[in-house]
Amino acid sequence: MSSGKSSIVLFHGVTMSSAAWEDVVPFLSDHHDVVALTALGHRGGPVARQRPVEVRDLVDEAERMLDDRGIAQAHLAGNSLGGWMAIELALRGRALSVCALSPAGFWDGGGHGQTAAVRKLRRIGTLVRATRRVHPLALRSAVVRRLSMRDVACRADRLTPTQALTATADLIGCTVTEDLLGTAEQIAPVSELPCPITLAWSAKDAILPPKVNGRIAQERFPRARFEILPGVGHVPMIDDPKLVATTILATTGAVPATTGVRSASPDADR
């Protein structure tokens, strides 16, 4: 039986899973029916039968997931790769609104804004795989959690050891990492938005910096609402779940927009 609330569908970043949204979902569930999906080829998600996998394949599979749930349109929110997927679904007419948190896909044909991100993500993956045997013991330490995840979050120490272990298991269990890191795809410019879109960039994003990728995003989506989220890293759900939820709910119209967060320039130092 329907709750009468509109649906919101959440998409995680590359090598992650729906578990990335665990601390955000409680803040959203009073306002929306929440569906957190795990992408094709990621741990716990549909198995990738054909390789290499491209972002369009993940979007195709996500659309099938929506169809299977009887969701014609929903509010969509995503981080990094998930933000890219949400935007592409919106361009297919599946979104009531989109909140894209530091979305991937905003780089130029020469790879500007992509190469450095890929290099860092590959380095993270190599380190996590090389140290997998010590994770259960090492990640009990809040200091280790914070330092080991510093490229993606400012406050990974606020995760529980179980949550940190899940994140590392998700990374190791992702079968399509290299496919996606090697893609030549990108998000094309649009002059008219298919629905309200918020591009919410993490101020301390070390993977897709606002001064580089955020600027490209503003140039390609000039009619989108652009925000800088203060004090958070590339995966803001780790650092400040409440801020993330408030930003999403402002996009869906469930709560008023928060003052003091929006920035007209990705160069803003927040």
Rank of each mutant, 00 (worst) to 15 (best):
S29E: 15
L28Q: 10
T15W: 05
G78N: 11
R43Q: 15
A36I: 03
A74H: 06
T15G: 04
G82F: 02
E63W: 00
G83P: 02
L58V: 15
D33P: 02
H32R: 11
A36S: 14
E63N: 06
L66D: 08
D60A: 12
R64M: 08
S18T: 11
W21C: 08
A74C: 07
S29N: 13
D30Y: 00
V59T: 13
V55Q: 11
V25W: 02
H32I: 13
L58R: 02
A19K: 13
P52L: 10
H31E: 14
H31V: 03
A48S: 12
G83Q: 09
S17V: 05
A20I: 03
M16Q: 15
H75G: 05
E61N: 15
A36F: 01
I71K: 08
E54W: 00
P46F: 02
W21K: 06
E63F: 00
N79I: 15
L81C: 07
L76F: 10
V53R: 05
G78A: 06
R69C: 02
D60R: 14
W21I: 09
A20C: 05
Q50S: 13
G41K: 03
D67T: 09
D33S: 13
L40G: 03
V55F: 01
D60N: 14
G82V: 06
S80F: 01
L37E: 14
V47C: 06
G82I: 09
G41L: 07
L37Y: 12
R64D: 13
A62C: 14
V34S: 10
F27I: 10
F27A: 15
V34Q: 08
S80G: 07
R56G: 14
E63P: 00
G83S: 03
L66T: 11
R56W: 05
S80V: 08
W21H: 04
D67M: 03
N79L: 07
S17E: 09
A74D: 11
S18I: 03
S18K: 14
Q50Y: 04
S18H: 14
A20Y: 01
H42S: 12
R51K: 08
V25A: 12
A36P: 04
V25E: 10
L66A: 09
S17N: 11
R51W: 04
Q50H: 12
P52M: 07
V59Q: 09
R43S: 14
G44K: 07
A39E: 13
N79G: 04
D33E: 15
D57P: 02
D68A: 15
E61I: 03
E22S: 11
A39V: 06
P26D: 08
H75E: 06
L40F: 01
P26S: 10
Q50I: 10
